[in-house]
Design a protein around this nucleic acid. Sequence first.
DNA 1: GGGCGAACTGCACTCTGTGCAAACTTGCAT
DNA 2: ATGCAAGTTTGCACAGAGTGCAGTTCGCCC
Lengths: 197, 197
Amino acid sequence: MSTGLRARKKRETHHALSGAAMELVREHGLDHVTVHDIAAAADVSVRTFFNYFSCKEEAVVGVDQGVLDDLADDVCRRPEGERAIDTLRIVLATEDDSEAMVRRWQLRNELVRRFPALLPRHLATTNQVEEALAAALAARWSLDPAVDPRPRIFVAAALAALRAGLAWWEESDRTMPLGAVIDVALSQLVTDLPRSP
Amino acid sequence: MSTGLRARKKRETHHALSGAAMELVREHGLDHVTVHDIAAAADVSVRTFFNYFSCKEEAVVGVDQGVLDDLADDVCRRPEGERAIDTLRIVLATEDDSEAMVRRWQLRNELVRRFPALLPRHLATTNQVEEALAAALAARWSLDPAVDPRPRIFVAAALAALRAGLAWWEESDRTMPLGAVIDVALSQLVTDLPRSP
DNA sequence: GGGCGAACTGCACTCTGTGCAAACTTGCAT
DNA sequence: ATGCAAGTTTGCACAGAGTGCAGTTCGCCC
C-alpha cells in the first residue's frame, strides 16, 4: 500500500483537491465556485483536476476506492459466527472514530443539505459503500451475491436505519455518543410497521 | 388536474422530450447524443429543453412530480389496518401494470446498466420515490416522519428488496409474473443474515 | 376581443469536460 | 551515475452544457 513517493503525492493531491473543494463550496456556495478555483487552491492545473475527478460534485462528495477496500477488509476480518448486524455496527463505528473523520463527514452532510445539486453524486457514493459492504458480507458468509439478494437487502436496510439515526442525531443536542446512535438505529430494524392506532 | 390545453401541451412536451432522450440514448449511446439532438427530436428549442430538465441525464431517468403524487394518493387510499408491506406490494404492483409502463421501466433499467453515468441521477429518482412513499406511509399510519425513522427504514428496505428481486427477474427467463416477483422479494425482508455454515 | 400571465425562443456568455501531444517526474535495472 | 520505461502534469483547442435576459407567441379568463 504505497510507500512510494509517487503514490504518496497522488494521495496528497487527491486530498488537497477534495479538501479545497469542500472548503470553497462551504464558504462561497456551490455555484460560485468553479473548477478553476478548486484547482488553483490545490495548486494544480484545471486539466489535472479532471485527471482526479469527473466533475466538481465528485470532488466534494465522492469517496476514494481505498476507503471502500478498507471497509471490505475490515468486514472480512471479523470472527466466524458473528451476527451480520454486529459486524456492520463495529466496522462502521470504528471507521468513523477519528476526530478529523467525523468533522469531514459532518461537513459533507451539511453541504448536501445546503446544496441539493450534490444529492445525486452523494447517493452514488452511498451506493458504492453499500455495494462494497454487501459484497464483503456475502463473501464472509459464503453467499453468492449474484443469486442471493439478502446481503444487498440487509445492507440497504441497515444503512437506511443508520442514515435516519444519524440525521436525528444531527438535529439533537449531540450529547449521545455516536456509537450509541449507531447501536440504537441498527436495533430498530423492523420487518413491518405497527398497525395504525 | 389540468383539462386545459396549456397543461396538456406541457405534459406532452415533457413526455416527448423524455421519450426522445431515452430512444436516442438507447440507439446512439449516452455521449453521442446532445441536448440539441433531443430538443430537435421533440421539435422544441434547446432553451425549452432546459425549461423542463436541468440536464440530459434527468431527461432520461428523471421522474415527474405527478407520478410521485399519484403514488402518495394510492397509499393514503388503502384501508385501515392493512399491513404496510401489503400496502407497498399492492401500490407498486398496480402502478406498473400497463404494458407501456413496464416497457418504459425496463428500457430505463437497461440504459442505467449500459451507461453508468446515469447512475447518480437514477439514484436521486429512486430516492424521491422512497421519500414520497415514506411520507405517505407515515401520514397513513399517523406517525411523525420527523421523529420516527421507521417509515423511512421500512421503505428503504422494501425497495432494496424489490430492486434485488427485479434485477434477478431481468436476468431470468422472465416467465414468472411480475406481481409474484414483488411478492417474493418483499417476503424475504430479513432482520439478519443466517450464521455462516 | 382584449388584456394578462405563462411558455417558447434566440442570443450571448461562462463554465464543463475531453482528446492530444509535449514536457516533466519517478521507479528501476544496469 | 546513467538511461530507459512508465506514469503524471500541463497547455491548448474545441464541442457541449447550462443560464440570464429580452422579445415574441399563445392559451386563459373576463
